[in-house]
Nucleic acid binder design. Structure first.
Length: 647
RNA sequence: GCCGCUGUAGCUCAGUGGUAGAGCGCGUCAUUGGUAAUGACGAGGUCGGAAGUUCAAUUCUUCCCAGCGGCACCA
């Protein structure tokens, strides 16, 4: 036997093991201990994830990945995708496979097949997957020359795979993985065998359409989504989380709590009911106070504007498809999809001096956008909505300070709504855009300079800027960890030029101002949807549609209930009275289900002593207080965060 | 817009080639009860819309609309 080179492997604890020749992760794991061998999933070799079966031929730093490691989940899910594909190929041989990555919480695989998969098919496929896991097929890695691989998959009738491989640079070796009779192109790594995926740790979730290569010009494939976890317990916990999220669905709560509704005759346009509109108005009043505090002036501009303005602003060219249009007096009119061109019209009235800048014009602007029908989603994506929109007209020198102040205002507002975690994204020039590169360079630099001075961390979002300028996007995280992009600040050197906005500078020359488009909530509709889900319908007192219900034990207290109710109303509290001849149990149950934050019960005792017994939502405790004390307490708590003392 | 699924009472849903049912809610009456369901009775539906097949369609077929899950889109 040749004298083989010794291989030294360094483990994470710093210890090292020497082998007489090339060694696989499996052998290493077995060498360390049978427990580790059993739990091993893959191995990290010099920072790169490898299969356990791959030979390590030189000294390396290694770490065995076991089921308990975070990294294992991704491998597990990727494997589940392969097992799914294998099951589908076995059951429906006429199907072509395409791609199947691991994703957050699970995996999917896209298939090309004439007949659609049904939900019944999912049950059958799931069963076959379990059988494949039982077979415990070895997963074998191999390499193949690119051209050979293209031929290999073409011959097999897998046109999509062949197309994918053909796109890989020539001469490059590609890796294939085989399990049973199923072979797939894959970077890896994979589990040693299919049996390593727990039979009761995965579940197929849904079938959906998805475009080949994510391009809507391409044919549509059938995507099967699944979820996979390390343990049955984790799977159950995940399914439970989904159920909990469903309970806070704003569409469901909106109906239950009579906040708003939609109907066929106005698809994507909410009808706000009294309760929902109350919340809306609280939010609007709050934002109005904040805008006043930060030096904004509120305006109101038309919803229907002549096409010629949209042509000048550039919207007609770029967004015509998404604009509602109509005609009157022989003129073509369009509903505004945004407010900026109208705000420039306000700016353009009269001569503006540099002394007037920055000019901050705010509008709760009612906009319409013809969104694709498939995009509509409750309040989150609508066709008519109102933005907390404003445009700051300023000089180039003022961009930095205006951005800084805006960020402060935005964080303050998010905090008041209970959102402490905010991410910032910087979107730079998109491919289709207005304006020359020099202007884009300048505006991107100005924005970058501004955001770095705020000290906020941000990530890049390349190519996602507006057609007229780069932007910052503000993303908040809700109570169950979901991200929502709400706020935005966009630098715009172009619209003021196009719409001929000018001011007289200190040099007595005319200049175009810079426009900062900015919103904090984004759309009220969507933000209310987020708030409903954030609070699961149990709003804090300042937002709750009904803040307190007053009710008696028997009808003997009706007069007193009315007296208490009148006092609450006089104090500006959103109170209701319940004089129905129902038992107290019944009324408590009903108002608790309606998520009313406070219930005042007045019995014979309270009526004589002029007290109320207070029951708060979510608590079974009762507290009897003097009426004045109770009302003052409620009133203090009903104040919006910015109206409380100390702000 | 694309793929798939769904559309029955105010809500949640069952059901059928011979023009429909439950629970909750709603109304009336009785009950006056101390913190998550008092009882009785009653009203309420051209079964999403249009066309077709059929002696007969809510049920089968086609088209349209809307909703849901994704994909694409999101100034």
């Amino acid at each position: 036997m040749n004298s083989q080179k010794k291989i030294a492997l360094t483990l994470p604890d710093g210890s090292s093991r020497t082998f007489d020749g090339p060694v696989t992760g499996s052998i290493l794991a077995a060498d360390i201990g049978p427990g580790l061998f059993k739990a091993a999933i893959a191995i990290v070799v010099d920072g790169e994830q490898w299969d356990l079966s791959r030979e390590i031929t030189q000294d390396s730093a290694v770490a065995i990945i076991t089921k308990n490691d975070e990294a294992a989940l991704e491998i597990l899910r990727h494997d589940a995708a392969h097992i799914l594909a294998e099951a589908v190929k076995e059951l429906y041989p006429d199907t072509q496979v395409t791609i199947g990555p691991s994703i957050e919480n699970g995996f999917y695989y896209d298939f090309a097949r004439e007949t659609p998969f049904t939900t019944d098919d999912l049950v059958i496929i799931e069963k076959r997957m379990s059988e494949i896991i039982d077979r415990d097929e070895e997963i074998i890695r191999s390499e193949m020359d690119r051209d050979a691989a293209v031929k290999f998959f073409s011959d097999m009738g897998e046109a999509y795979k062949a197309e994918l491989i053909a796109a890989i640079p020539e001469g490059q070796a590609i890796t294939l993985y085989k399990q049973g009779d199923f072979i797939d192109l894959c970077r890896g790594p994979h589990l040693p065998s299919t049996g390593k995926l727990g039979k009761d740790c995965f579940k197929l979730m849904k079938v959906a359409g998805a475009y080949w290569r994510g391009d809507s010009n391409n044919e549509m494939l059938q995507r099967i989504y699944g979820t996979a976890w390390r343990t049955k317990k984790e799977l159950k916990a995940y399914l439970h989380r989904l159920e909990e999220a469903e309970k806070r669905d704003h569409r469901k709560l909106g109906k239950e709590m009579k906040l708003f509704h939609f109907q066929e005759e106005a698809a994507g346009m909410p009808f706000w009911h009294p309760a929902g509109w109350t919340i809306y108005q609280q939010v609007e009043a709050y934002i109005r106070r904040k805008q006043q505090k930060y030096g904004y002036q509120e305006i109101k501009t038309p919803q229907l504007v002549d096409r010629s303005l949209w042509e000048k602003s550039g919207h007609w060219e770029k967004f015509r498809e998404h604009m509602y249009t109509t005609e009157a007096d022989g003129r073509a009119l369009a509903f505004k999809p945004m407010n900026c061109p109208c705000h420039v019209q306000v700016f353009n009235q009269g001569i503006v001096s540099y002394r007037d800048l920055p000019l901050r014009l705010a509008e709760f602007g009612s906009c319409h956008r013809y969104e694709p029908s498939g995009a509509l989603h409750g309040l989150m994506r609508v066709r008519s909505f109102v933005q907390d929109d404003a445009h700051i007209f300023c000089t180039r020198d003022q961009i930095t300070s205006e951005t800084e102040v805006f960020c402060k205002m935005l964080l303050e507002i998010y905090k008041d709504f209970g959102f402490e975690e905010v991410k910032v994204k910087f979107s730079d020039r998109p491919e289709v855009r207005a304006g020359d590169d020099a202007t884009w360079d300048e505006s991107e630099d100005a924005l970058r300079d501004a955001i770095s001075r705020t000290g906020l961390d941000y990530s890049m979002n390349p190519g996602e800027g507006a057609f007229y300028g780069p932007k910052l996007e503000f993303v908040l995280t809700d109570a169950i960890g979901r991200d929502w992009q709400c706020g935005t600040l966009q630098v715009d050197f172009i619209t003021p030029k196009r719409l001929n906005a000018q001011y007289v500078g200190s040099d007595n020359d005319k200049h175009h101002p810079v426009m900062l488009h900015r919103a904090i909530l984004g759309s009220f509709e969507r933000f209310l949807g987020i708030l409903i889900e954030e609070h699961a319908g149990r709003f804090p007192l300042w937002l709750a549609p009904t803040q307190v219900v007053v009710t008696g034990i028997t009808s003997d207290q009706d007069d007193h209930v009315c007296k208490v109710y009148d006092q609450l109303i006089a104090q500006g509290i959103r109170a209701e009275k319940d004089l129905r001849s129902e038992k107290i149990n019944y009324k408590i149950r009903e108002h608790s289900h309606a998520k009313v934050p406070a219930i005042y019960v007045v019995g014979a005792r309270e009526a004589t002593e002029n007290t109320v017994t207070v029951r708060r939502l979510g608590s079974k405790q009762q507290e009897t207080l003097d009426l004045d004390v109770a009302i003052n307490k409620l009133k203090a708590e009903s104040l919006a965060p910015d109206q409380r003392t100390g702000q």
